[in-house]
Nucleic acid binder design. Structure first.
Lengths: 195, 195
DNA sequence: CGCCTACTGGACCGGTCGGTCTAGTGTGAT
DNA sequence: ATCACACTAGACCGACCGGTCCAGTAGGCG
């Protein structure tokens, strides 16, 4: 066979980028095709289920990529609070670098399509679950109790802060939120958490 | 004049509902018109700037409505932790009642359009700012220091929890998050907050 | 070599999009 | 009574949507 996955990969990466910036419904297949220099026939050959499949795989791809970057960032931290701050720095940096266009690669598509497409909802769910899994393990490894629930809290507050930052065009809220959540998690790790 | 604002109001309310459920790009003007039984001419008479103006006003309207409901719910609380829990209950209830279709009336539109339309971004910003203002006053009134930053944290974690709940089709995360954030805020109010 | 198949290339489809335009209509003021 | 104006009504527009179809092509394999 030829370069087998070349076109497929190119189309998928292009789509992932566009979905992240513009969302699902604002991204046309013609735009994906033009930007990845692929003809329509190739798209439907590689993604026979069409746009829905493309989006589900794109979410999985960019979710996985970001998950790896988060894992790498966290590995350099000395503890939960610093880890959470580093994740915030990473996300804030991406946001600023892209002029507030590139937020969470999952959130926009999730809000748009989770209610209308089960495959897409499920892909978003899986992406978040994978991040949560990594986060939970990390927290547990650092002596944090109720690690699952705290991971939910960390992810929730990060996602919300990312949303507010995009709306405000100001990343301040990300740092403010991660600082407080980091402190809360560290307290819990030291066993003096309340409630 | 005739019933002056009748059609305008009906179109706007219909649009607000559809934008909340489906988002900005998935909602067609024809759908809004059909559901509100208005002709296209009326839409462009009342909203000369077209879909963008309609969305900006819809966000303001549903943001204001939800803000009032939140204010009413909070008024029944005995303190910050309970207030936050009641807001979570309210949002979780809406989500379940609508089979996870009606989340935050601002978030989806914000993520879709904030990067592409300044009027819409600004309307979303204003809606959040208004909620934050109410929340900040409430917290300050209950002896919470750094009320602005904590209000940001409360709103962020709520928004993120709402997103996760929609993706999971399970409101558990909302209650889990509000419980923890409520405890954190109450601690801060009692002056024993850390960091 | 020639064949099979994985893949490309793009014309084409019906439908819907947001938006424009122009008649018509009912009502309150004069 | 009639006129001005706020508003309705919907036909119509070009652009673009996601999706289908099929003719071509190029490489690995007999």
């Amino acid at each position: 066979m030829t370069r087998r996955n070349d076109t497929r990969e190119r189309v998928l990466r292009t789509a992932a980028g566009l979905f992240q910036r513009q969302g699902y419904n604002a991204t046309g297949l013609n735009q994906v095709l033009a930007e990845s220099r692929a003809p329509k026939g190739s798209l439907y050959f590689h993604f026979p289920e069409g746009k829905e499949q493309l989006a589900a795989e794109a979410v999985a791809l960019s979710g996985g990529d970001l998950g790896e970057r988060i894992t790498a960032a966290v590995a350099a931290a000395s503890g939960p609070a610093e880890a959470i701050a580093l994740i915030g720095d990473l996300l804030a940096h991406d946001l600023e670098q892209s002029e507030f266009q590139e937020g969470c690669p999952v959130a926009t598509v999730a809000l748009e399509a989770a209610g209308a497409s089960e495959p897409i909802r499920s892909a978003c769910d899986a992406a978040y679950a994978s991040w949560l899994d990594g986060l939970t393990r990390y927290l547990r490894g650092h002596g944090v109790g109720e690690a699952e629930a705290l991971a939910d809290l960390v992810l929730s507050s990060l996602q919300g802060a990312l949303l507010l930052a995009r709306v405000r065009r100001d990343t301040g809220v990300i740092h403010s939120v991660t600082r407080r959540i980091g402190a809360l998690v560290d307290d819990t790790a030291q066993g003096k958490g309340s409630a």
